[in-house]
Write a protein that binds this DNA or RNA. Structure first.
Lengths: 121, 121
DNA sequence: ACGCTAAATTGCTATTTCGTCAAACGGTAG
DNA sequence: CTACCGTTTGACGAAATAGCAATTTAGCGT
């Protein structure tokens, strides 16, 4: 494990980073990105894969497009979307790892330690 | 550039990942994490650094606590918060890098190429 | 021109979430 | 105990957002 020293971010940068996280904070959008891991797909394909209505899928794809996370290619009647920013997968993987660690730690605490995490109310 | 192949995530995992991203999608919460980079701090210190009202800071800290991103230590009248999940900084750094790249690319396009990103309506 | 189809957009309702104020809680000191 | 202080919590109004239904836009074929 490296002890990277991370830089403080400016107020403006923070705002932009928050916005990017917000784009990734909706399950349907993550499902769409997940589906696009296999490669470019049309809206109808994505509709079928996600089981959501077309209007919803279109709207969320539009958001992802504006954010620069995906790119669009129009061909005839169809629009094909693909991943434009591959870092999203690394982000997801990193979060997954972090969640795994946390779960594992919580399990440890279940064996005899009652003092920490789940914030009792 | 490595061509990592990333795993597809389960429906449930996606939901959890989305929730984690949501926690990180608020500017004030990122400001709090940013302030905690220097180490453990009390609520009042964080109130002063962020310029937000105390009730607000407390509420957001509570969210970060529930999410396991920060940890709390109570001493006398005060509560001291610290980072519990260091991956948040790597996540932010990664997003920053990605945004930087995107901005650079957009600047390129300004010199003579009118076809791509900002989604004209 | 017309109809058919894929995608994008609009209007609406319901839910969520932020920020603020006010009150409650928990320690500490006089 | 009472008064005070730092923190947490509850309630309220305002703004944002997801989902659904209906409409519009745009390409293709007849």
């Amino acid at each position: 494990m490296s002890d990277h020293t991370h830089k403080h971010l400016s107020e403006d940068a923070l705002e932009l980073v928050a916005e990017r996280f917000k784009v990734l904070s909706e399950p349907l959008r993550l499902r769409l990105l997940n589906a696009l891991m296999d490669g470019e797909k049309s809206v109808s394909e994505l509709v079928e894969e996600t089981g959501s209505l077309q209007a919803n899928v279109s709207k969320h794809l539009g958001l992802l497009l504006d954010a620069g996370v995906v790119a669009r290619r129009k061909e005839g009647l169809r629009s094909y979307y693909r991943i434009a920013d591959k870092t999203v997968f690394e982000l997801c993987d990193m979060v997954c790892g972090s969640l795994h660690d946390r779960l594992a730690a919580d399990l440890e605490h279940l064996s005899g330690d009652r003092s920490s995490s789940p914030h009792r109310r």
